[in-house]
Amino acid sequence: MNESIAIDDIETATTFDAAHEALSRQGWTVLAPALLEGGVRAALGRFGAIVPQYNGEDTWEVTMRPGFEKLPYSQSRNAIGPHTEVPVGNPPPHYLALHCHRQARCGEGHTRLADGMTFVRSLDAELQRYVHERPVQFAATLAPGTARRQTLTVPIIDASASGDRPIFRFSYNQFLYGDVNPSEAALSGVSSGATSVASTRRASASRDPLVRLAMLAASYFESEAVPVLIPDGHLMIWDNHRLIHARSTYSDPARHLTRYWLQ
């Protein structure tokens, strides 16, 4: 796996022109605190309009909350597998931003990024046809264990989207457990071998293209993803229609970032 990028090695943008150039070239950028002096919302307004999230608010606090100790969820300290944000969105947010208030002092909790289209080009011909042509039902319970759920059936690479390029959607959790935000019961179905969507998929991994995609993405991330510890006071923004992201596990309960979605 790539080593995490130290702040001295990050291409920290000190002008908005530089941020836009990096975002276009590599799909992500980190804004220096000086660019946020007029307010985070004003800075983000140079990239798009802030839109509401699952909770109906336009911000989401990415920090540890009780009740999610066993789940791959943003408000746990657990690792989260490769995914794009809101694959059930039509369209999903174009940009995702994380404003770091306090990074984990344990040296973990990396935001890991990889180019989704480069990942697709690494697949065999059969899977490449699958991601371009086969509609997939994406499903997201709005919070693990709750009843509210959104679904959308669309190919992983959605060429019907408006704009000059297709939208890439992906969810490790969805492809293994049947939901972007799986419940504890869905996860335990895998570990116990109980009959469930997830365990059935695991058992037929050699035949199920979604399971194969999840496993291949996890392997791809180990060798190709860029792991970044966003420094305190900085803001990271990336192209959610192009990049897959993930998070490594961490132990520091004081880690705190605020998430924004932009269109």
Rank of each mutant, 00 (worst) to 15 (best):
I10M: 15
T14G: 00
T15I: 10
F16E: 03
D17L: 10
A18P: 00
H20F: 07
A22F: 03
L23H: 07
Q26H: 07
Q26C: 10
G27Y: 04
G27C: 04
T29I: 07
V30W: 08
V30N: 06
L31C: 09
E37D: 13
G39K: 02
A43W: 05
A43M: 10
G45C: 09
F47Y: 03
G48A: 05
I50Y: 10
V51C: 07
V51N: 05
E57C: 08
V62P: 06
P66F: 02
F68V: 05
S74L: 15
Q75K: 12
G81F: 02
T84K: 05
T84L: 02
E85M: 08
P87Q: 11
P92K: 00
Y95Q: 03
L96M: 13
A97P: 00
H99L: 14
H99V: 09
C106F: 01
D115V: 04
D115S: 06
D115F: 04
G116E: 06
H132L: 13
R134Q: 15
R134T: 15
T141K: 11
L142P: 01
T146D: 08
Q150I: 10
Q150G: 00
I157S: 04
P166R: 00
P166T: 00
R169V: 08
R169M: 12
F175H: 07
L176Y: 01
V180S: 02
P182R: 06
P182E: 13
S183V: 01
V190N: 03
V190P: 01
V190T: 08
S191T: 15
A194N: 09
A194E: 07
T195Y: 01
R202Q: 12
A203S: 13
A203H: 12
S204L: 13
S204M: 11
V211H: 08
A214V: 09
M215L: 15
L216D: 07
E222Q: 14
A225L: 07
A225H: 01
V226T: 15
P227V: 11
L229R: 11
I230N: 05
P231H: 13
P231S: 13
H234P: 03
M236R: 06
M236V: 14
I237A: 02
L243E: 08
H245I: 11
Y250F: 15
S251M: 06
S251T: 14
S251K: 12
Y260S: 11
W261Y: 09
Q263I: 00
